[in-house]
Structures are given as C-alpha cells and as structure tokens.
C-alpha cells in the first residue's frame, strides 16, 4: 500500500505542475495585449501600463513564471481586475455552493443510475433492459442547460411548485435552500444518470457471469439474495471509478447549470469573468477546478486500492 501511495502521489504532483503551467499559459493565448483587452478602447496608454504592471505583464517571461509558481504555492491566485479582490478568496467563498450542487446531483445520479443499471443487467436482453438502455442513450443526448430551461418552464412557470432560480444559503433557511437546489441538482444529475446506468449494467453483467455467483445460484439461494448480497457489492467497485470520472463532468456541468438557475457558485464567477475578460479569475478558476477534480480522483483511487487489493500491485 505504501509504494502504491507514493507512486500515485508522485503522478498527481507531475500532473499538478503541468496543470498550473497550463493555467498560467492561458494569458499567452490572448491575442494582443491582455491589459488593453480588459480595458475599453478609450483607455489611455498610462492606464494600460498601470494594469500591465499590476498583472505582472511588464516582467520577463521567466520572472512571470517564477512569480506565478511562488504565488500559487502560497495559495494566492492573484487579484481579480473586475472585482478588485483576491481570486482565491472569491473562489473559496463560492466553493461550498458549487460542491453542494454537484454532490446532490451525484447522489441522485448514483442512486437512480445504479438501480437502473441493476434492473437492466438482471433482465439482460429483455424489455426492462432495452427500456433502461434507450432512456440512458436519450439522457446522454440532452444538453444540460436546455434541460434546465425546460424544467423551469414545467416546474416553475407552469406548475409553480419550485422557484425558477435564485439562491438562499443553507445557514439562512435549510428548507428554502433545498427548494432552490432541487431543480438545478435534478438537471445536473439527470444528464449523468445515463452514463452511470450503462457502466453499472456492464459491471453487473460482468459480475453475474462469475463462477462464485453461479455457485451461489447453484446451491439454491434466492435470486434476490444472490443479486443483492453476492453480486452487487463486487459490481459496485468499478462504480467508484465512475464517480471519479463523473465528478469532472459534474463540476463542468455545474458551471453551466448555475447560469440557468442564477446560483452564485464558481460557475457564475467564471462566466462573469468571460464577459469582462477578467483573466486572473479565468486562470485561477480553471486551476482551482482542476485541483478539486484531481483531489477527488486521488481519493477515489486510494479508496479503490483499499477495497480491491489487486490495484495496489498493478
């Protein structure tokens, strides 16, 4: 286990170094002068020069890079030009909202997806299987933000059951918070259900074909007991990896879904920065999301090695 951990951490470190380099390099992609791109055409050369030095763009490239790595190692992602405050502070302030949205969506997607996958696998090639697979494929083909808009149309505008958007913090009123989060979490989760159901079905089919399942079957155990007691626990192990994969899609999806429902998370911060060309927020936001994603996957991989010893030796 020790050597597995060291190898896994070393790999994560290399990727992290590259990820931060890429986030830094983002500013090179800006055609022309990033400072001039942020300010409008009426800006005086003196204003542009001030912003350039505030962004550190007047330094040489190696100096800029050393400065960037030095700052991010101490957790400083620079200053937002637009909000005139620390990017890290703005991101950390909004992280709980985005994480809560993603977590609710994940819980929904895993419960529904695994159940659907299980039903499909047990009824392999019969109608429940085909129904689940068709629904899953449809789910993979729906744009998340459009689904969100349709949800608003149906559940907020027509039926009036839930608010069409906005946000109340959990500490203010847990009930109101949940009402605000249901539609966004459903939207975000539904898009992932299809993928999880497909993977769960494949994993379950694989497990149901194993010798030990046939033995359990042959010794006369009830079918439900064989499926839930013997096959399901092992079939769930690969689902752990799926959670790692899906977490990236959920973080990205949350950014879009926050727009639809006006939820003040990291996504709104990043999208606001796109319109304003607030480059430090874009760089910091990308790096931050990547670090969150890498951390989740690190935890998932370690958990996987704990439940499945074969992984440690691979």
């Amino acid at each position: 286990m020790g050597s597995f951990l060291i190898r896994r951490l070393a790999g994560a470190f290399v990727v992290l170094a590259l990820v931060s380099l890429m986030s830094f390099a983002l500013i090179w992609l800006v055609p022309g002068d990033p400072a001039a791109a942020f300010l409008d055409a009426s800006a005086t050369p003196a204003q542009i020069a001030t912003l350039r030095s505030a962004l550190g763009l007047d330094l040489s490239l190696p100096q800029q890079m050393i400065g960037w790595y030095g700052r991010i190692l101490s957790g400083d992602l620079g200053q937002s030009i637009l909000l005139n405050r620390s990017v890290s502070a703005a991101l950390i302030e909004r992280l709980p909202v985005t994480l809560a949205l993603a977590a609710l969506a994940l819980a929904f997607a895993v419960v529904v997806g695994v159940t659907a996958g299980l039903v499909a696998a047990v009824n392999h090639n019969r109608w429940p299987d085909q129904a689940v697979m068709t629904a899953a494929l449809l789910g993979l083909s729906v744009p998340d933000f459009w689904l969100g808009l349709v949800m608003v149309l149906v559940f907020a505008v027509s039926l009036g059951w839930l608010p069409s958007g906005g946000f109340t913090s959990f500490t203010q009123s847990p009930g109101e918070w949940l009402r605000c989060m249901i539609l966004p979490a459903l939207t975000l989760g539904l898009v992932q259900v299809g993928f999880i159901a497909r993977m769960a079905r494949a994993s379950m089919l694989d497990t149901l074909g194993q010798d030990y399942v046939r033995t359990a079957d042959a010794k006369g155990l009830a079918k439900l007991r064989v499926v839930l007691g013997h096959a399901l626990p092992n079939a769930l192990i690969p689902i752990l990896t799926v959670i790692g994969i899906v977490s990236g899609a959920l973080l990205g999806g949350a950014v879009i879904v926050e727009q639809v429902f006006s939820i003040p998370g990291i996504g709104r911060l990043i999208v606001g920065a796109i319109a304003a060309r607030d480059f430090p927020v874009l760089q910091g936001g990308l790096l931050f999301l990547a670090v969150v994603y890498l951390s989740i996957n690190l935890v998932v991989d370690i958990l996987y090695a704990v439940v499945d010893p074969r992984v440690r030796l691979a």
């Binding site: 992609l29 999806g253 060309r277 990308l286």
Partner: peptide
Amino acid sequence: DALMAFPSIVLAMVVSAVLG
C-alpha cells in the same frame, strides 16, 4: 492527463473566450 484534469466544458469555454 493535465488537460483532462480541467472540466472539459469549462476548458473549452475559457479557451474560446480568451482567444476571442
């Protein structure tokens, strides 16, 4: 691996916005 660490939709969004 590093490119895959960014949520792909956000990466595409930011790159497209930065390039113009």
